[in-house]
């Protein structure tokens, strides 16, 4: 059976924000060009973001992020693929807030890690808004923080994803 176009939700401007919270310094960076797709038939969700697109409070942090930490010229994207549960009762024509569990694999810096997170999908007057907050441990992705700056960069980075989805018009 061919896929029904109605079953796919797509976002090309998902906002992906991360926070490193430390007593000495808080760092936050944002990328508003995340890609995300949800297949409501299968419950599959994907999120993909170009690491070079993260904007930092200053140019030096941004350079260090790309050059020293995520090595974005070698590993240009962060990519998540997983499933949402439950997905069977999501109806786009009915306003509701769906509490979901997202399970899947995060790929970053050449490493993969299983992730579970709470998320929600809100349907309101035809708008479809997805939200998720979860943490990543830099150690899991072999991103090393040198001793000199270990008081300024958290080992535990909090990630916040917010995506406004459109119903996909035509099949990819």
């Amino acid at each position: 059976m061919p896929l029904d176009a109605q079953d796919r939700l797509l976002s090309r401007d998902a906002s992906i924000r991360f926070f490193s919270t430390m007593p000495l310094e808080n760092i936050t960076a944002v990328n508003n060009q995340g890609l995300s797709v949800i297949d409501l038939k299968t419950g599959v969700i994907e999120i993909s973001v170009l690491l070079k697109g993260f904007v930092f409070p200053n140019a030096l942090m941004q350079e260090h992020f790309n050059e020293n930490y995520v090595e974005s010229s070698k590993y240009p994207r962060a990519y998540f693929k997983g499933t949402i549960q439950p997905f069977n009762d999501i109806r786009l024509d009915k306003d509701a807030v769906h509490k979901l569990i997202v399970k899947g694999t995060m790929q970053l810096h050449g490493k993969s890690k299983e992730i579970n997170s709470h998320a929600q999908l809100q349907i309101k007057e035809g708008k479809i808004i997805g939200d998720a907050v979860f943490d990543l441990l830099l150690d899991d992705f072999s991103i090393q923080i040198p001793k000199l700056v270990k008081d300024k960069i958290a080992k535990n980075i909090s990630i916040n994803v917010k995506a406004i989805y459109q119903v996909q018009k035509n099949n990819l």
Partner: peptide, 12 residues
């Protein structure tokens, strides 16, 4: 078969 891969490939 495509569905096995990333749905986002073209967009990426």
């Amino acid at each position: 078969i495509l569905a096995q891969e990333s749905l986002l490939k073209d967009l990426e």
